Amino acid sequence: MLRTENLTFKYTQQLEALRFPDINLKTHENLLILGESGVGKTTLLHLLSGLLKPVTGKIFIQGVPINTLTQRKLDAFRGQEVGLVFQKSYAIKTLNVIENLSARLFFSKTTVNIEDINNLLNQLGLKDCKNNNINELSEGQLQRLAIALAVVHKPKVILADEPTSSLDDNNCKIVMELLVKQAKQTHAHLIVITHDHRVKPFFKNAITL
């Protein structure tokens, strides 16, 4: 379950506060958040992940009011329960593919199971490059690795920031199908923020900022 109430955020005193619609996702429900640049999509994603604290309002993930947690508890909660898919790859360049995924599990205090990692890599078409260094991967492989890093620890919420904006139609479809499939397999909420209207058919729930 993911729920928000009366969320607002302000970057400086001079700027007008950003106000966001309430979200109420039940088990297995996903959400598309649409909007043009500058309307606060990424800000909302950062609020939902706990990377920013709202000025007003509450955020509940699995019943936990995350914006009331101490920084230490919030870091631990985010590491275990939230998966983030960024536009840019944040894989550790000194580690190979499988080492990156093992490190993600280690930092989320999740048991490293090589069989589970291999299964995930196989599902995402990365098994043949599991021992490759990051600089040996194509853009498409880096994108699939970003998805793997976001779901390997089986989070309750997967947040994706413009995952298809630079892709052609075929790769847009492939990436969205992978995200929806991985969210379903890990019983997670998938929340995608984007200005890309091509992803609308993948969602029953959508809001526009």
Rank of each mutant, 00 (worst) to 15 (best):
K53Y: 09
A103S: 11
Q182F: 04
L69Y: 06
F60M: 08
K181R: 15
A160I: 01
I98A: 07
L145K: 04
I98V: 14
N113W: 07
F106I: 14
T110N: 15
V39P: 00
H46G: 02
L25V: 03
P201M: 10
L142K: 12
C172F: 04
N96K: 14
A17N: 10
L126V: 02
L95W: 07
K204G: 10
E29P: 02
N122I: 11
E162V: 04
I33K: 05
R104G: 01
E162I: 01
I59V: 12
V64G: 04
I59N: 01
R198T: 04
H28V: 03
L167H: 09
I114H: 15
N100Q: 11
E99L: 09
L95Y: 12
I61H: 01
N6Y: 08
Q182E: 12
I114P: 06
G125I: 02
A150E: 00
I193H: 07
A17C: 08
P65H: 13
S165V: 09
H197N: 14
H187S: 13
P155S: 10
N96P: 04
Y11D: 06
S102T: 12
F202Y: 15
L120D: 00
T4F: 04
L145G: 00
K88W: 12
T208P: 02
V199T: 03
V175A: 01
Q141L: 08
F107H: 13
T186V: 15
E177H: 13
A183C: 09
E5P: 01
R144Y: 05
S166C: 08
K58A: 09
A146Q: 02
N119K: 15
G57K: 05
K41P: 02
D128K: 15
T94L: 12
K58T: 07
N30G: 04
K41S: 05
P201I: 09
I117A: 03
L121P: 01
V64M: 11
I98H: 06
P201A: 11
A150W: 00
N119M: 12
S165I: 06
L149S: 05
K173F: 06
T110M: 12
T194C: 05
F60H: 11
